[in-house]
Amino acid sequence: MAYFWWFLIALGLAVVEVISVDFFFLMLAISAGAAGITSLLGFDLTAQIIVFAVVAIVLLLTLRPWARRVLERSVPNTRLNFHALLGQEALVEETVTGEGGRVRLAGDTWTALTKDEVDLEVGEVVYVNEIAGASVVVSRVKA
C-alpha cells in the first residue's frame, strides 16, 4: 500500500511543478514515482527511500540543468508587467513637471513626472524612463 502514498506524493509534486515551472519539483515527482514502482515490486521502505534519493540526485544533477537550458532557449525574453512599459511612447495630457502631471500611455492615463528641469507641455510625445510607484518618469529622450 506504500506505493499509493508514493504516487500521491508524485502527483502533488507534479502539481507544484506546474505552478513553479522550475523543473525541481518535476525531478522529485519522477523520483517519488520510481520509489512507488520500487514499492510495487515488493521492496521494503529503506530500499524505496534509497531509490527516491538516488533518482532525485541523479535527475537534479543531470536532467534538470539540461531541461532548463532547453526551456530558456525556446522561450522568448518577453518583458511583462511594468517592464513592458519602459521605453514606450506616451502623450502628455496635462503639463508634466518634477511635481507631477498626466500622460496617456498604453490606452490609460498615468500620473507622470520628469526628472529634468524642463516642463513637458500638452501634446508632446515623451518616453517612459522608469516607474516610480504608481507614476511614470518620462522625458523627451528615449532611455
Rank of each mutant, 00 (worst) to 15 (best):
F24C: 04
I131K: 01
L85G: 02
V18G: 10
F25D: 03
E124T: 04
I50Y: 12
T114D: 08
A10L: 05
A143H: 01
V55I: 13
I57L: 11
F23D: 09
T111C: 10
E130K: 14
L86Q: 03
A90W: 02
R69A: 12
L8F: 10
V137L: 13
D22E: 15
L41S: 13
E72P: 03
E117M: 13
F24M: 11
A143K: 00
I37H: 06
W66S: 15
D108T: 12
W5Y: 08
F4Y: 07
G12Q: 07
T109D: 15
S139I: 04
D119Q: 14
E93D: 01
A47M: 08
R68G: 03
D108C: 03
R140N: 14
G42M: 14
L91K: 14
T46P: 04
R79A: 02
K115H: 14
L8S: 09
F82P: 03
R69K: 13
R140Q: 15
R79D: 02
L41W: 12
L8I: 06
A67F: 06
F82H: 14
N77S: 13
S74M: 14
L41R: 09
E93Y: 01
T46L: 08
I49K: 03
F25W: 05
E121T: 04
N129P: 03
I30N: 04
A10M: 13
K142G: 05
A47L: 02
V16I: 15
S135L: 04
Y127I: 10
F52W: 10
V138H: 07
R73S: 08
L28P: 13
T38N: 08
V75Q: 14
L11H: 00
K115Q: 15
A134Q: 02
L40E: 09
V126D: 08
R73P: 11
G100P: 08
F25S: 06
W5S: 08
F4N: 04
L91R: 00
V92A: 04
T114I: 01
I50Q: 05
W5E: 07
L41K: 03
L28N: 07
V55H: 03
V122S: 04
T38A: 01
W66N: 02
E94G: 06
